[in-house]
Amino acid sequence: MKPILDVKNLTMDFGGLRALDSLDIDVRPGEIAALIGPNGAGKTTFFNCVTGMYNPTQGDVLVNSPSGYSTRLNGLKPNKVTERGLARTFQNIRLFQNMTVLENVMIGRHCHSGAGHEIIMDPDNSPVKRMAASAFFGGMEIAATLLKGKRFKEREQETVQYSYKVLEKVGLEKFANNFAKNLPYGLQRRLEIARAMATEPFLLLLDEPAAGMNPQETKELDDLIQRIRDKEGISILLIEHDMRLVMSISQRIFVMDYGKKIAQGTPGEIRTNDAVIKAYLGEDIDA
């Protein structure tokens, strides 16, 4: 089976610093994979390269969606990457704090709503046509919002219902109308995942989802991640420092150090891998 994310020979230079060095990482359909490594190993840089925040210096980021198309993501803008089925969360919480929980999720639906979307987005259309369509549908949207047109209402209703469903999946439906900033920390983390899920990804990239959580919250997160994979069929690649979480939920683990992949394998293999132990604990003095 083709991997859904296939990263080959990925290199990222910042000036003279090589942050990622010919990295090969792949995620298979229906898998929970983990990316671990000491601080500064380049894990988040890797996520940034995959999601279009950075344009990698070399190498390929390929996706093969479950629905059958394959694309190269290099150089695409983040919103295009999201449209192609990847979603991510961040190490620090980056919710839209001054919007309600529901609105946060509805924003995630943004790329799936909007009339005339196909015409405006299609790069094959002439710029004039796209601009005209953009102006026309933009004007229609303004009019529709203000007049509450029937189709607009229906679409809005659809988005709200879908967003509620997503909130139910992560157990946040009670908080739909609260401001994001008023949620407790653990729930904010969940909302980040919900917002990412609302874009209907087939691969979810989670950057330290358990950071700052207590053991109880981590346990719940563990269940949530498994449930997302099993019920929604979304594959997951996560960066995490909580080894108990990593070892218990992931099928495969990639280990990075100084921008290079130093090991990959099942949790059992990684646990006994010498290179990994060395990277984390340093060299044995006696050896």
Binding site: G52, K77, H110
Partner: peptide
């Protein structure tokens, strides 16, 4: 509020 995050949830 957060331009990069908006892009990442699909906002053009």
């Amino acid at each position: 509020q957060d331009r990069n995050m908006a892009m990442l949830v699909g906002v053009n």
